[in-house]
Design a protein around this nucleic acid. Structure first.
Lengths: 214, 214
DNA sequence: GCCTGTGAAATGGTTCACAGCC
DNA sequence: GGCTGTGAACCATTTCACAGGC
């Protein structure tokens, strides 16, 4: 594996996800080859930025030609480690948790949901999208049995830390937190926060700025 | 208004949203005053970072004391422009669109959903969460009538650009795009992209890194 | 004494410009 | 000729360190 073990900027990783998205769309449109310039325009970034980003992981392009779309998608996916199946579990079976469990795209993208957990006795035992809801306290026990690599927290904010603790105890090293609360984890556990109010705030701020400067 | 008309980093705005989240949680716990050091620890950032961020908008703290939680929340909300009601509309009434329409938190946070649009004739006329679904082509007409400031796109990716065009035509200056596709807008329109697969990819990458370095 | 606000220093990321290669 | 890959130059953001004020 082409692993240049230098530090890779977080921003680069975020852009890589965007590149995949755009490249898959180009692929659907039947495009075979793409230059960094054209890809850059679609992603609203600088062409050198793309070349630098990709260079962290290897040499994927052909000089004088560009990048082969299909190959580049595979290369990026391999570089990010998303060319395989990841076993995930959802903790917190409310509206959002159910929506995620029913979302087919997860499986299509290699993220298989293999566990559904909640601490509400009324929900335990219920079948959601083919999975039995299990008591959160039994997370470690279940994880040992089925293997859970990524945890998705969809509890109310006040229960997010407890859900986190169960996941960490179970040996999970990656967490996506949809709950609007900060959580504490050991250094070897990665957390990503998803909260679209943050995005709404950002848009509101920018619109306000533009209105004022008129 | 304390408007230091210098450029404010995008990263600062993102952190401001986090500060609000944490401060509101502190407020619920009955905390009156907080130091930049303590707030920093909770948000996993550097204390000077917080002081610098806040300084873009004004002097909200008291030397030797810290920040008054209640006041700081109000000040930040005012600074971001989220201390008022924003009229929003959802374009694309699928699973996600419906979920957002039924989400009470929007109204609580000042984002009132005043329009629901879709281009599917079978959906037009349907009542979702008290709103009649209207043909996307009539967006401008409706916007002139009710006023729409922020658009939320929840269409499939191939229809995202058309939804965008309708919104831009209607004079909307801020867009949240949940569709997994890039969209083109004029310079005076702000777009925020929400795609949790990007976050899943980021987590997968970090977990992969940690596994490899063991 | 303590904690904020802020210029100055350090860090890290982005863009430029061109060498290298098809 | 054209487009990638990359060191060097540039720019922005973060962190430090301390002055300012309760």
């Amino acid at each position: 594996m082409t692993l240049k073990s230098q530090h890779i900027p977080r921003a680069t990783i975020q852009r890589m996800a965007v590149y995949i998205q755009v490249l898959e769309s180009l692929q659907r449109d039947g495009k075979d080859v793409i230059s960094s310039e054209l890809l850059a325009k679609t992603c609203s970034v600088n062409p050198s930025q793309i070349r630098k980003d990709l260079a962290y992981f290897g040499e994927f392009g052909v000089r004088g030609v560009g990048y082969y779309v299909q190959d580049l998608i595979s290369s990026i996916k391999q570089a990010l480690g998303v060319d395989r199946v990841w076993k995930t579990a959802v903790v917190g079976i409310g509206n959002l948790g159910r929506a995620l469990l029913n979302h087919r795209e997860f499986k299509l993208r290699g993220f298989h949901i293999v566990g559904a957990f909640d601490c509400d006795p009324f929900k335990i035992g219920e079948i959601v999208s083919g999975l039995e809801v299990i008591c959160s306290r039994r997370l470690k026990e279940k994880a040992d049995e089925i293997g859970i690599e990524i945890g998705i927290i969809t509890t109310p904010p006040e229960r997010a830390q407890r859900a986190t603790n169960y996941l960490v105890d179970a040996g999970v090293k990656g967490i996506i937190n949809f709950a609007p609360a900060r959580i504490n984890v050991p250094d070897d556990v990665t957390v990503e926060y998803v909260d679209f109010f943050h995005h709404l705030y950002a848009v509101a701020f920018n619109v306000t700025l533009n209105i004022e400067s008129e």
